[in-house]
Design a binder for these strands. Structure first.
Lengths: 130, 130
DNA sequence: AGGCTATAGTTGAGTACGCAACCAATATAG
DNA sequence: CTATATTGGTTGCGTACTCAACTATAGCCT
């Protein structure tokens, strides 16, 4: 699933999630640290991740006027497009995976319980709203 | 948790789980492929994992009389001891983690639901019975 | 018997991280 | 206003994997 579906679009799970979070963020941009938090990665992990997305043209850097330490990661148009394509097959895949094993009621229970875990930023409606 | 507690014993999560599975297996030994399946690793992943455990003296190799392709991974006495030490703090940590967030009833629901996922080899009683 | 195909395992190359060390900019203290 | 601590970010190095290629054995099938 992570493997096949997402790799078909040339995106790893974290690539995908990074784009997703950016697409949800105001103006499609986020400080790298904050992104790290959401992705459950370290700062260095995010640096490397964004390196890839950047050379792929899906994300750009922007600097912050009020604090010159921070550089934003901002979603490009290409990134937004790519995310939408990938989310098509990805959310379908995930949905199929769970619906094959659980009833609607069980899915709600799972979502409620798992949603209380540390890094769970409400993935209930993870289609691509960007 | 994986990080602190298990690394305190010099074991990664997969090291730990490998020892656990071996301790539960008949005669404390298992074919490397089967172990790979349980650990959700590839064959090469297991080779490398066992390399480590082997040089640490926690696991040994044994060959199979009826099929000369297979080599077993067998738990040594040192391995069994180490597992028991580690499981002390590890299961306590895991238990604390979940009990801090869920009620008894919720834990049963979670166990029931998550137990139906692909690699879930009934971890309900994962104390070290070895 | 000989020739496929599948299975168990290892190895080399590449990837995705974490950790520790570092630099630069900012905040806090004195 | 200097001195120190904190925060955002990058880089070097090590680790835990995967994938693809390879060897050796085993089970067919004719």
């Amino acid at each position: 699933m992570s493997a096949e579906l997402v790799a078909e679009h040339g995106l790893t799970i974290n690539d995908y999630e990074a784009l997703l979070h950016l697409s949800r963020a105001e103006e499609g941009r986020m400080r790298r640290v904050d992104l790290a938090g959401l992705l459950l990665l370290t700062a260095s992990g995010v640096t490397r991740l964004l390196d890839g997305l950047e050379t792929a043209g899906l994300v750009e850097r922007a600097s912050c006027a009020s604090d010159r330490r921070v550089t934003y990661a901002v979603l490009t148009e290409a990134g937004r497009t790519r995310l939408q394509q990938a989310s098509l097959s990805h959310v379908a895949g995930v949905r199929a995976f769970f619906e094959a094993r659980y009833s609607g009621e069980e899915l709600e229970q799972l979502a409620a319980l798992l949603g209380r875990l540390p890094g769970a930023a409400d993935a209930t409606h993870e289609d691509c709203t960007g």
